[in-house]
Nucleic acid binder design. Structure first.
Lengths: 380, 380
DNA sequence: TGCGCTCTCTTAAGCGCTTAAGTACCGTAG
DNA sequence: CTACGGTACTTAAGCGCTTAAGAGAGCGCA
């Protein structure tokens, strides 16, 4: 441990003794100041200040039955991110090994900088949503708890036990684990399948967004050969792929049955598949990607294969993260109102989101995205 | 309220009854699995799963004497940010007024997008530090609590009562309020004055960083007329201004006594002062700014006055935020290893930062910054 | 057969608050 | 002088866990 022996925490008992009152009066001094005479209240507060009294949130939470905290949970956020720019993993380990000691200067290299300030690693979709969530909580005067963990029951239960309400970026198998808790605390799932589990939903209109992208490519650019890059392991991915296919069918084109697999974890199959398409001389005119991250990765691969973007191959994204605005060419995409979605989740959990639907069903807040036409499709 | 009547929280008693064991066994099933027979443990866990049991963190925290959470607190972060791009304030209010209701689509305008995705508002210095802090906590398997509030005693005490350790971006008057708690929980202050209060410090080498900037301007560009833009309301500001003056004196130049005041709250006096300098025909060759945010604001004003950057006036920053890389011209600045600093704070609080200095004094981790020469000084 | 040991599980005492209910006191009305 | 109501404060019972200490069963061994 890095800490010297600490003095026992100051409690209500200490303050009560110091101020010559009962512990109830100490509690009242903070929670119901109007119930005490000015003199007593001041005496108590002064004693508390003198003793460095910090009321135990655990005790308060236990007595009151709620913690006052709203939580935002992401499954394995760390791992997902650690794997992406492969170098990140190294960075994490390195920071673990050298012990910090005493007052000393910690050197820092440019390599680290390039790594740490990479907009392709931060801020991503979750970061912007998280920011909205946190801002809204602060406006309400509530602290926020951010957690990340695997989607096993224990981890989820543990998180659920710490908060009055929980917003979650769900993972593939987590829905079942989550529904279990929505009877005791409100749960908001971002971009999750409709469920009879009683949890609320905050999501973007994937169908509308994808329809806009496809309309732009079909009508403005007259594209007739497509491929979809992404995964079907999330509700967002499924909806986007479904509308992609729908749009092609409407246009009289035959969509493929499977997307080009763009996993961000494990071996990258996307490059392999794009290479295969190129080798077969069947590289499509447009790559419609499920996310901006997928799109940026796809652009790299496509260029590696000797194609120019957008001249030879058009690439589009989905989400509207900062990195897509900064890339060359800038990414044509559909932007989600991420901060607003985070805020909405917080308000739903806090119970300040307005009346529930009449029929007693949970909230299902669907946000409209906005098309941003930029250079990666040949416009702008 | 937005919530339907919720069922009472499931407790150890419920699980114990369901599984036909004592409450101690329920606790052991989670905390000391090896002390139970496989059969019993499974029976308990199954019952817990069936009942949707989420152990109360409040009760656990009370019984154990610690919460397991590390906290990061910023004073009035909201206000500070709300004031900066004036429009943000409006954005916040607007999001409060319209009630979300039932399943419905929430429209979203381009105006909002331009506002919300502005890199000059996010990510800033605190965001990058916060990210490092959160990542490190997650690596350790701990949740993070983020809070923001005024620097009155009650707010600080309240936050301190929720966590096992607290990292803080201090405000001007908060030091006194904070030192009071460092005897009961470890406290890390970012960029704070040395203090005998027993709190730890994580900071950047302001002196070294400013010396590098000044050497570059003096030696490479031969600048002989300067002004410093910033505030002296923080330790960082003080140190940077002090070294700025020192460098000028070393170069045989006479520094001014007061910086150009670049407040981000309340009326902006910087524009006024720069206008005055320009009117007097005394606009300096280089504006050395205390932060990147100050520098970006200064560039706006300088250009408004008809000067070109860097041709007429050189502008430099400090921090290395993303917005400075994206501005035109890109900002010559000194970059702090913000993520690493956030990580260091988390490790110090968790007690995994290595042994304390022999003499029992707290940690004082000083990070070396790195000079990034870009276009705003005429290089790059 | 009895003793001690291990393994498994239970009993029960808190942890530090909040709060309903109770008490003491004072001023005023009857 | 008593009755009464209001104010200011105290008493004491939890809230749902953790954990030290204890109990009981089963086992090996003398």
């Amino acid at each position: 441990m890095s800490e010297r022996p600490r003095t026992r925490r100051t409690t209500v008992y200490d303050v009560a003794q110091e101020a010559g009152v009962s512990i109830a009066s100490v509690s009242f001094a903070f929670r119901r100041p109007e119930q005490l005479s000015d003199a007593t209240r001041e005496r108590v507060l002064e004693a508390a200040r003198r003793l460095g009294y910090a009321p135990s949130a655990s005790a308060r939470g236990l007595a009151r039955g709620r913690t006052g905290i709203l939580g935002l949970h992401a499954f394995d956020l760390m791992l997902e991110r650690a794997h992406e720019p492969e170098a990140r993993v190294r960075a994490l380990r390195d920071l673990h090994s050298p012990d910090l000691e005493g007052p000393r200067t910690i050197a820092w290299t440019e390599t680290d900088d390039e790594l740490l300030a990479d907009p392709r690693a931060f801020p991503l979709y979750v970061d912007e949503v998280q920011r909205g969530f946190a801002l809204e909580c602060w406006v309400m005067g509530r602290p926020v708890m951010l957690s990340s963990g695997s989607d096993n029951d224990v981890s989820v239960a543990d998180t659920a036990g710490r908060v009055d309400g929980l917003a979650i970026f769900p993972s593939e198998g987590s829905a079942a684990a989550l529904s279990r808790f929505s009877s005791s605390i409100p749960i908001v799932l971002f971009s999750a399948a409709p469920a009879a589990d009683g949890h609320h939903r905050v999501r973007v209109d994937n169908t509308g967004g994808m329809r806009e992208i496809m309309a732009h490519l079909l009508d403005v650019h007259g594209v007739r050969s497509f491929a979809f890059v992404g995964r079907l392991d999330s509700w967002d991915g499924e909806e986007r792929f479904a509308q992609y296919r729908e749009s092609l069918i409407q246009a009289g084109l035959a969509p493929e049955d499977e997307p080009v697999d763009a996993t961000v974890r494990g071996p990258d199959r996307m490059a392999e598949q794009l290479h295969a398409l190129a080798a077969a001389g069947r590289m499509p005119r447009a790559l419609v990607c499920s996310t901006d991250q997928n799109a940026l990765a796809a652009m790299d691969v496509v260029r590696e294969l000797g194609f120019r973007v957008p001249d030879d191959v058009i690439v589009t994204g989905f989400d509207g993260i900062l990195a897509g605005r900064l890339s060359t060419p800038a990414l044509t995409t559909v932007r989600q109102p991420m901060e607003a979605m985070g805020r909405a989740a917080a308000r739903i959990l806090a119970g300040t989101a307005g009346p529930l639907p009449e029929d007693g069903s949970p909230f299902d807040a669907v946000f409209a995205p906005a098309l941003f036409v930029r250079a990666s499709c040949g416009c702008g």
